[in-house]
Design a protein around this nucleic acid. Sequence first.
DNA 1: GTTGAAAGACCTAGTGA
DNA 2: TCACTAGGTCTTTCAAC
Lengths: 155, 155
Amino acid sequence: MSINNLDPTDTAILQLLQHNAELSNKEISYKLHKSIATIHERVKRLKEQGYIKRIVAILDRKKIDRSLIAFSHVLLNDHTAATLDAFEQEVVKFTEVMECFQMTGTFDFILRIATSDMEAYRLFYRNKLATLPNITTVQSFFVLSETKSETAYPL
Amino acid sequence: MSINNLDPTDTAILQLLQHNAELSNKEISYKLHKSIATIHERVKRLKEQGYIKRIVAILDRKKIDRSLIAFSHVLLNDHTAATLDAFEQEVVKFTEVMECFQMTGTFDFILRIATSDMEAYRLFYRNKLATLPNITTVQSFFVLSETKSETAYPL
DNA sequence: GTTGAAAGACCTAGTGA
DNA sequence: TCACTAGGTCTTTCAAC
């Protein structure tokens, strides 16, 4: 449940793999002054126990035509479980929706939307998001520039 | 520059690796009905050309004591280049700041903050974020639940 | 751009310390 | 946890198509 299950070696391994999962067990063992067998065992356990959810390739979104990122704040008509569930169930199906969080505060959801450009966002908004039932308001904010974008948590 | 440089094989490789970068060239070659050498060559090129920025381990943030995610909207006093640059330069140093985007609209930056709990967020806010110069307002929104969180862009 | 083959590196499980 | 072993798999290169 907690980070307290992890000793300094586990933590160091996670730290390394968060930044570069192409490191071989051999390279990690060298960096951490441990045997290959130890690293192999640790990594296997960290995956089995779910600390490492998956290993993925991070792409340059500008090179694959996803230059525009928008954050959209969605407010629903009512907050019954049925309405919330129905919205979540539908919105996650849209491929433009990279993330969906239910929030505290003055609105219900934050969506992170990735599209090629403003026109593509407009089409997404008109033809997909705005067609969902029970939406009161959608407020959209657009990313001008990305100052920091990190997938690795400090440990 | 564009996705148009990519043929269907490249696209398929990126699609696979975005979801699971542990796939071997052999497994990919089997899935795509190509030779191992071809896949090897393609992946190498996709990395060299920057389509694949890096391969990383995605951790379960709740297991490593980063249960609370906040989105913070920051408005600065003025919008001179010097003020914007100074803010960016300092805010990215905070390890709690996972992402920082400069935005269009009614505020200047969106930060995604990861902390262990509300008390840790309070400390971050009081001792780090609020100490930066030229901040007019900070509005914070907290994640109740994560409905979707995807690193893979559709291709 | 693609292929098969071949050498070398790596992974993985097992043993014993 | 470590060192060592050994079989199997994967990576990487290259000549050839």
